[in-house]
Simulated scan of single mutants.
Amino acid sequence: MMMVRGSVTSLFPGVLVSALLAGTASALVAAFGWHSVSPLLLAVLLGMALRAVVGARESLRPGVAFTVRPLLRAAVVLLGAQVTAAQVGTLGVAGLAVVAASLAASLWFTGRLGRALGVEPGLARLIGAGTSICGASAVLAVNSVARAEEEDVAYAIACVTLCGTLSMLAYPLLAEALALNPHVFGLWAGASIHEVGQAVATAFQDGREAGEIGTLAKLWRVMLLAPVVVTMGALLARRGGRGADGGPAPLPWFVAGFLGLIALNSAGLLPELVRGWAGQAAPFLLAMALGAMGLDADPSKLLARGPRPLLLGLGATLFLACFSLIGILCFA
């Protein structure tokens, strides 16, 4: 009992500081109306700034490790409470297929471009996941099987958030220039802009119809996070020699929980109170994980990555935007 109590006590400083970083980031975004700034990105930057001031503290390490692993996985599980199969089904077969094909093509393209640019494969996978699926949430979820360095995670999130912000600014201008109707614009925003908040906010700039379509398209991409994580984990295990018994790759518990909540929510078995609580808790836990990663990231290693990963993120963003728009105009 004393050992358990001591272990729990050792987690407290790191978890508390991570929570303070997340709370500060959320408060700053709300206070200054920074709608284009993700609290997740701000949390990681605050964490890195705090590390630069106070240095790496050994007392924070156990709580930081707990926050970037079990708490992060719990946040991914809670994302499932916001999605139902009936919601995304209203996009129709063509809409669902275009979004899924765009996601798959973007992952493939990012891997190929990453190799051409000489970007480390683990970092390229994280940038590909964040671009193709749902921003920082996807980066964190995929890293549970990719197991990249903390600096790679921080770089990928910063890169994906920057590219998503540029998309928020460019899409309304492009929609006007291309004379896109609200249905097409909403589906395009939901199919290609990175963060959930970025995609939804951009879609609603063209009215309610575009906003609702964009939200549904983005929820469908969030649902696809689970099969991507499972597939990537199986491929990496095979390449790395793990699971040499030839058996199927195990389903990560947090992915199983994510799918389970989607199933419960789709069946109408989740009370509105639980759904509301999950909707508030998931972003905060994700911000805590990002703050903790910022505390654990070495800025010198981050800068050593150079500009090539940023070029990868920009290239992947441009590819996804073009591929998805062409698919929507042709088939959806």
Rank of each mutant, 00 (worst) to 15 (best):
I157T: 15
Y155W: 15
G247Y: 01
G130F: 02
L71G: 01
M3W: 13
L45N: 02
S132T: 02
A156D: 12
F66M: 14
G315W: 02
L123P: 03
D298L: 06
T67M: 01
A226M: 05
A263T: 07
A297I: 08
C163D: 05
R112L: 15
T202G: 09
L11S: 03
D296M: 13
I193E: 03
N181R: 09
A56Q: 10
L273E: 15
Q198H: 14
L216I: 11
G14K: 01
I133N: 01
L45T: 05
R69L: 10
M1R: 13
V77S: 05
A101G: 08
C159I: 10
A105I: 09
E209F: 10
S132W: 00
G89W: 04
G257D: 13
D245P: 01
S59K: 10
S167G: 14
A156L: 11
E150G: 12
L40C: 09
F254Q: 08
G118T: 14
F284I: 04
L103I: 11
L96N: 00
G291A: 06
W277Y: 14
W220Y: 10
A85Q: 00
P307V: 00
A249V: 03
A191G: 15
T215I: 03
Q82I: 06
V76S: 04
A94M: 12
L173S: 09
S132E: 00
M2E: 10
A158L: 12
L314E: 01
S38T: 12
R208C: 05
V83F: 01
G327V: 09
M168A: 13
A100N: 03
S324F: 10
D298P: 06
S10P: 05
E209H: 08
L174N: 07
P70R: 07
V17W: 04
L113D: 00
C159R: 00
F254W: 10
L11C: 06
A136L: 07
I127S: 00
A74W: 11
L123Y: 08
A156H: 12
A237N: 07
L224D: 02
S59W: 15
T67S: 03
I326C: 14
G164K: 08
R115A: 13
L126R: 05
P252D: 05
L302N: 05
R69I: 09
T131Q: 05
Q198K: 07
A226S: 09
W253V: 13
L270Q: 09
A105K: 07
L216E: 03
V44E: 02
A297L: 04
A19F: 15
I127Q: 00
L113F: 04
T317M: 13
P248K: 04
T231W: 15
L72M: 10
A289R: 01
A56F: 06
Y171S: 02
V274R: 10
V230R: 00
L310H: 00
A179S: 15
G89S: 10
I262P: 02
G47T: 06
D152G: 13
L45Q: 00
A287G: 01
D206G: 03
A179Y: 07
A138R: 01
A156Y: 14
L107E: 00
P309I: 03
A81G: 12
L235K: 07
L320R: 13
L46R: 04
R238L: 15
A97K: 02
L264M: 11
T165K: 12
A100H: 04
R115L: 06
M2T: 11
G14N: 04
C330V: 13
T84I: 07
G260S: 14
Q87G: 13
